[in-house]
């Protein structure tokens, strides 16, 4: 059994230091790894990233993260990622990482992902260059997730988790206004997950959404945005693999 702890949308700022640390210090008792599903900061500034880095530095479990749209707002996501990596966090974008958990190789594939919407109600790659780029960017994120999941399988991971910020399914957006679903996720992420296979999909971004969902291919999806789970993190026991 693999014990996966996960949370997203912690939106840390200057006054947040130490708010989550006491809960994170209990992680070795209940989890084998911690996933951070993006929007770790409010504006993506280095100052905010340092607060996050300090909050998770030297935790006794591996920490794997993707960035969210807030972490891009200050237009220096590389700096945010570097500050987190310096604190020992593995930050993924279109790539995977392997965590050894009690002799089992657990693969985590990650991308921020992007919007575009869900089948029948989605943006198309057509018209103005800006619109085409919107959809192409979402597709590139999904392609990165698929190839990372496939590579993890080739590397013999018995358990694979897809980590995104944007949602792969509409299920976990229930509670959000339907009109904004195209800004909350994309079916392209779910298609990537179903094509490559995964044991769990974890995302954030939709603060008013719901925790549980599933892809069309039967992969369980969990929205771990902190306002949704109403805890410092949630823990999932994966018996797959």
């Amino acid at each position: 059994m693999i014990r996966v702890a996960a949370v997203g949308d912690i939106h840390m700022g200057p006054e947040s230091q130490g708010v989550l640390r006491p809960a994170f210090e209990t992680l070795p008792d209940c989890a084998d790894l911690l996933l951070l599903a993006g929007d770790l900061t409010r504006h993506g500034t280095p100052e905010e990233a340092r607060v996050v880095a300090q909050e998770v530095r030297d935790l006794p479990v591996p920490v794997v993260a993707v960035l969210g749209n807030h972490d891009h707002h200050d237009e220096q996501p590389e700096k945010v990622a570097a500050l987190l990596e310096d604190a020992g966090v593995r930050v993924l974008e279109g790539e995977g990482t392997i965590v050894e958990c009690g002799g089992t190789r657990v693969g985590v594939a990650g991308t921020k992902g992007f919007g575009g919407g869900f089948v029948g109600r989605s943006a198309g790659e057509f018209g103005e260059p800006l619109m085409k780029e919107f959809v192409r960017y979402s597709r590139r994120c999904a392609d990165g997730l698929r190839t990372a999941l496939e590579e993890l399988e080739r590397q013999g991971c018995g358990t694979r988790v897809a980590l995104t910020h944007f949602s792969p399914v509409a299920d976990t957006l229930a509670g959000e206004p339907p009109e904004i679903y195209p800004f909350l996720g994309s079916y392209l992420l779910a298609e990537a997950i179903d094509t490559a296979g995964a044991d769990l999909s974890v995302h954030g971004h939709a603060h008013a959404g719901t925790e549980h969902g599933m892809t069309a291919g039967g992969v369980r999806v969990r929205n771990v945005a902190q306002p949704v789970i109403r805890r410092a993190f949630n823990v999932y026991h994966l018996h797959a693999g």
């Binding site: 969990r222 410092a232 949630n234 823990v235 026991h237 994966l238």
Partner: peptide, 11 residues
Amino acid sequence: ETATPDHAEEL
């Protein structure tokens, strides 16, 4: 809320 979870979900 920032409390530690009191249970895990079995999958």
